[in-house]
């Protein structure tokens, strides 16, 4: 019998990241590893530095100190030796942008930031494929419709502009657009923020299915502990730019150790 590997390979190695806009504004000395297939939740109140950290991880903002190392595990296919381990801010901008476009994905809180509002849903989904060099209109369209089905949108609306979609549908469209190139690592910034609870629940359910089906590794930033509970395997609690507690999601939410985490958990409203 083949035993499953207990220790999944490290995908993202974050070493001592600091990005400060002022004292305790930003994030400071963040150190963690993200394993392949893992969903890591970063929780904390507004201004705790979680979004700054995400921007640094996602290659959008250079840190003041520290390294973000992306390990494309050598075991799978024989990669170029130089390419097996990429230091995000040591490689050139061209390489970094290609990485963001082809192997990573970013889901913004506001779908308007992640979508091209001027072009149809199909063009939005196809953009990353076209950037990869796909030049067959029929195939692009078929893929677009397939992904609209995956994210539970009506494939018949493939030619409609995103602004005719509701907030929840725009968010689904943004997720389809990001996942269409099957990225290995996805960053999500409050993916369910601003949606009402029933829409949020369905979106979360869909996200959980997709993450499992595609074997995605996800860094999820949220202030909503319920969202974190549903999606994340592991949690990092941030406060004033620093990580105050890390651990398995259930462990942190059921038995918080740090006083700030205890406060956070006890502040959750239950109807």
């Amino acid at each position: 019998m083949k035993k499953p590997a207990l220790e999944r390979p490290v995908l993202l190695d974050v070493q001592d990241i600091t990005r400060l806009y002022g004292p305790a504004k930003g994030c400071e000395a963040i150190d963690f590893q993200l394993h392949a297939g893992e969903v890591l939740g970063i929780v904390g109140e507004s201004g705790s530095g979680k979004s700054t950290l995400l921007r640094v991880l996602a290659g959008l903002e250079a840190p003041d100190a520290g390294r973000v190392v992306y390990r494309r595990h050598a075991g799978e296919d024989v990669l170029d030796r130089d390419e097996a381990e990429l230091d995000l801010y040591a490689i050139g901008e061209a390489r970094r942008r290609a990485l963001l476009r082809l192997e990573w994905g970013l889901v913004h809180q506001n779908p308007r930031d992640g979508l091209r509002m001027g072009v149809s849903a199909g063009a939005n989904i196809g953009e990353r494929l076209m950037a990869q060099g796909q030049r067959h209109y029929g195939q692009l369209r078929a893929t677009g419709q397939e992904w609209m089905r995956q994210v539970e949108l009506d494939p018949g609306r493939i030619d409609d502009a995103p602004r005719t979609f509701s907030g929840g549908m725009q968010q689904r469209l943004q997720i389809a657009r990001t996942l269409v190139t099957r990225p290995r690592l996805v960053f999500m910034d409050e993916p369910t923020g601003g949606l009402d609870v029933s829409v949020q629940a369905r979106l979360l359910d869909m996200l959980r299915t997709l993450v499992r089906q595609l074997g995605l590794s996800v860094v999820l930033v949220t202030h909503d502990l319920a969202v974190a509970r549903l999606l994340a395997h592991r949690l990092m609690v941030m406060r004033r730019g620093q990580v105050v507690e890390t651990g398995l999601t259930d462990q942190i939410l059921d038995d918080p150790q740090h006083e700030y985490t205890q406060l956070l958990v006890s502040s959750v409203l239950t109807p």
Partner: peptide, 13 residues
Amino acid sequence: GVMHVKLYEDIAR
């Protein structure tokens, strides 16, 4: 890639 987005949009419309 975005140049083809425009052409795609043309065909779609």
